[in-house]
C-alpha cells in the first residue's frame, strides 16, 4: 500500500557489496540495494539473520569491511567522522527498538526533542520550545507533558517521543530498528498509523528492520528478506508476501499466526 508521489530516478542511498564479519562469523554478506527518495524499504528475517548488523553498518554504528555506501552521491565510508556525525544529526535519524537507547531519560520531553535543534545551532529558547510543542502534537503527546521526563511516559509514548526527537530536524533518511517491538498490538497499530502518516507527509526515505510481516505490509514499498547474513529475496512488498519464491520466504510467510 503506497500513498506517495512517484519516486525520483537518482537513488538517495546506494549500497553495493556491503559485508560485515564478526571474526570468522558472517554478520551480513554482499548486500546491495538502491533506496530512492520517499521510498520505504523493509528488511525482514529471523533473529540472527544479520538485519540489525546491516542497519547498524548503514547508519555508521559499525564499520563494514567491504562494500560501498553512497548517500546522495557521497561516499559515506570515506567521510571524516565529523562529517558523518553531522550527517547523522541532520539528514539522518535512527529510531532504536528500545526508546531508552534513543532518549535521554533524565531530560524532559521538550529537551529531548530540542536536543537535535540545539546540536545544529538552535540558540533561541522560544523557537526551540515552539518546535518541540509542535512535534509533540504531531506524535499525539499532550502539550502539557512537555516538561515531564520520559521515565514518566508509557512505552508507547516513549517510542512516539523518540520518533519526534528524530524527525524534528526534518531528516531525509530514517533508520528504524523494530520500532514496534515490545508494544502491545493496539499501541502498535496506532504507532504504525502515525508512522505511515509522517512518512507520507514528510516524504521520508525509510529503512525499517523488523520481524513482523504486518509492519512491512503496512509501511514498506519494497522488501528484502535476509537469512544467515545473505539477502535471499527482494522485490515489491506485496509481491514478495503474496508470491514468495525462496523457500525461506515461503516458510516465513506461512508461519504468520492467523487470528
Amino acid at each position: 500500500m503506497t500513498f506517495h508521489q512517484p519516486v525520483q530516478d537518482t537513488p538517495l542511498l546506494r549500497v553495493t557489496g556491503l559485508t560485515k564479519h564478526y571474526g570468522a562469523r558472517i554478520g551480513c554478506a554482499d548486500v546491495s540495494f538502491d533506496l530512492y527518495p520517499g521510498e520505504v524499504l523493509g528488511i525482514v528475517g529471523e533473529s540472527g539473520s544479520g538485519k540489525s548488523t546491516l542497519l547498524a553498518s548503514l547508519a555508521g554504528h559499525l564499520r563494514p569491511e567491504f562494500g560501498r555506501i553512497a548517500y546522495d552521491g557521497r561516499d559515506v565510508l570515506a567521510m571524516s567522522e565529523t562529517e558523518r556525525r553531522r550527517l547523522s544529526r541532520t539528514d539522518w535519524a535512527y529510531v532504536h527498538q528500545n526508546p531508552r537507547d534513543g532518549l535521554r531519560m533524565g531530560v524532559s520531553a521538550g529537551g529531548n526533542v530540542g536536543e537535535r535543534l540545539m546540536a545544529i545551532g538552535g540558540r533561541h529558547y522560544g523557537d526551540i520550545r515552539a518546535k518541540a510543542t509542535d512535534w509533540l502534537g504531531r506524535v499525539e503527546i499532550a502539550a502539557d507533558r512537555i516538561d515531564d521526563r520520559p521515565s514518566a511516559f508509557s512505552g508507547g509514548m516513549q517510542q512516539r517521543l523518540q520518533i519526534a526527537r528524530n524527525l524534528v530536524t526534518a531528516p531525509r533518511l530514517v533508520f528504524m530498528d523494530e520500532p514496534t517491538g515490545g508494544l502491545d498490538v493496539s499501541v502498535q497499530a496506532r504507532l504504525l498509523d502515525l508512522l505511515r502518516g509522517l512518512v507520507r507527509d514528510l516524504g521520508l526515505s525509510v529503512i525499517i528492520v523488523t520481524h513482523d510481516l504486518a509492519v512491512v505490509r503496512l509501511l514498506a514499498d519494497r522488501l528484502m528478506v535476509m537469512k544467515s547474513g545473505h539477502v535471499v529475496e527482494q522485490g515489491l512488498t506485496d509481491q514478495v508476501l503474496d508470491d514468495p519464491q525462496h523457500a525461506y520466504t515461503q516458510l516465513l510467510v506461512s508461519s504468520v499466526l492467523q487470528v
Partner: peptide, 18 residues
C-alpha cells in the same frame, strides 16, 4: 574533539523549562 556542544544547551534549556 568534534565540537559537539549542543548538549550543553540542553542543560540550560532544562533550567529555563523548570
Amino acid at each position: 574533539e568534534l565540537e559537539e556542544y549542543g548538549l550543553m544547551h540542553v542543560k540550560l534549556y532544562e533550567d529555563i523549562a523548570r
